[in-house]
Design a protein around this nucleic acid. Sequence first.
DNA 1: CGTAACTTTGATTAGTATCAAAAATGGTGG
DNA 2: CCACCATTTTTGATACTAATCAAAGTTACG
Lengths: 271, 271
Amino acid sequence: MTFNLHPMSLIIRKLSSYVTLNDEDRAALLALPHSVRTVDAGTYLVREGETPGRCTVVLSGYAYRQKITGEGARQIMAIHLPGDFLDLQNLFLELSDHNVQALIRSDIAFVPREALQDMTVARPTIARAMWIDALVDASMFREWIMNVGRRDARARIAHLLCEFALRLQYAEASDAEGYILPMTQEQLADAVGLTPVHVNRILRSLTTDGLIKRERRYLSIVDWDRMRVVADFTDRYLHLDQTRPGMLALQQRSQNDRAAPMQELHLDPTQ
Amino acid sequence: MTFNLHPMSLIIRKLSSYVTLNDEDRAALLALPHSVRTVDAGTYLVREGETPGRCTVVLSGYAYRQKITGEGARQIMAIHLPGDFLDLQNLFLELSDHNVQALIRSDIAFVPREALQDMTVARPTIARAMWIDALVDASMFREWIMNVGRRDARARIAHLLCEFALRLQYAEASDAEGYILPMTQEQLADAVGLTPVHVNRILRSLTTDGLIKRERRYLSIVDWDRMRVVADFTDRYLHLDQTRPGMLALQQRSQNDRAAPMQELHLDPTQ
DNA sequence: CGTAACTTTGATTAGTATCAAAAATGGTGG
DNA sequence: CCACCATTTTTGATACTAATCAAAGTTACG
């Protein structure tokens, strides 16, 4: 899978989902200095403890954020799709607190950090969009804390599968039927805080229960209604409802097809 | 515990830990419209699904971020200390994806959301500081994902206790000996993804093993060296190393006293 | 000083991890 | 195009951590 478009067009598309860019904004983005490289699966894009001198953007493929505990256990904290910025999380922090790796062979754009930092001053609208992007990432981190902290194995895995389906659909990187799950079961396990063996068993149980279908790595969610319940999935945390010129149609569709209102929570925890 | 200083001075102090504010920046902050209110424990400061019309800052007391699963289980995703902004996470997002509540009776400052948004355009340095603050929050979220996903019960709890100790010390809200743990064991459980019963057992085992000491809610870490190992704790994710005029002394001290170098990880996960 | 909230303890169960190994898949070079 | 090897997925048997259920102490508070 090689990348043909102008790399910055993907970024423009992404930022346009958060704010309305004017011509100058677009011109500034197109003028950003950058290089593009194809990297193999596993290539480190950012390393814990280092000061990234550049910001990276996924053009094609996937990347993931990861840390290793003192015991050697790995926790995956995020998966990134084409169009995602990888280093807004580090843009203003001296030392990276986690690793970022390519999940599969991917095309990556590299932009000098200073160029982006300068842009945050020169072009407030772009700054705002990048800020929003970082906030949405943070929201996903919060949901993952909940996923791993308070849902059982079945719900955790189902939740991750739902999240992928929706994000890929929004990124227009999947057909309506399903998608190619880009991760091994071991990586899945590290994303949901389980063992690979257990992930395997749950995946099959989801399959035999008629919630999902799998052929090789191709996965489709067969019964969205039941799946949403099992996964305890609501898409609010993805913040897909921001101003998205030109994406409203898609948004509508997804809301009808799959995001039918779950009954509202009105729990009032004692404190 | 009532709050006597000018509310904005706390914010200035906080932001100064990330950037160098000039007189105009300080003046702009002091001129921010705001109100102060004392709220009881449990008071909701932000509700999931709502659009917060104001940004809140903890002046005294504590606040926490929280979500409830469909099954009714609560996950606490962050604890905030005096000086922390609560709504930078929502500043540019339409609907809040989580709840924020006061942990104990607290003094809270409310700033109109637009006033802060305007400031991000008018005063880039302040914008940058607020952005950094949000990024540090995100870093803490990542660490919590790892805590809850890949550490066992003992390490999880120990880690949280270490985090508190360090953050409180930096906020100069604790003496050198220890601190008042502001949470019930049930809340602790919800922060680390365990049951209160199990938290209780682990706390005692940490006590009998001579790692911590407890009198009522007052907690002190007796053996930092062993505690750091048990907790798998490193403070990098707190990003206390940003430019901090006037706080270098404290930082030095903490590095000598408690943050002695752990042996570096050089694990190279297969991918 | 009485009551609600919180902490502590015990006994049992459930959910995942661990260990081990076989089957399937994917890629590579001959 | 096939044989081979590494990786990934699947399965089984057992161990263990943490959850659950239940209830007694303890502390905080009006």
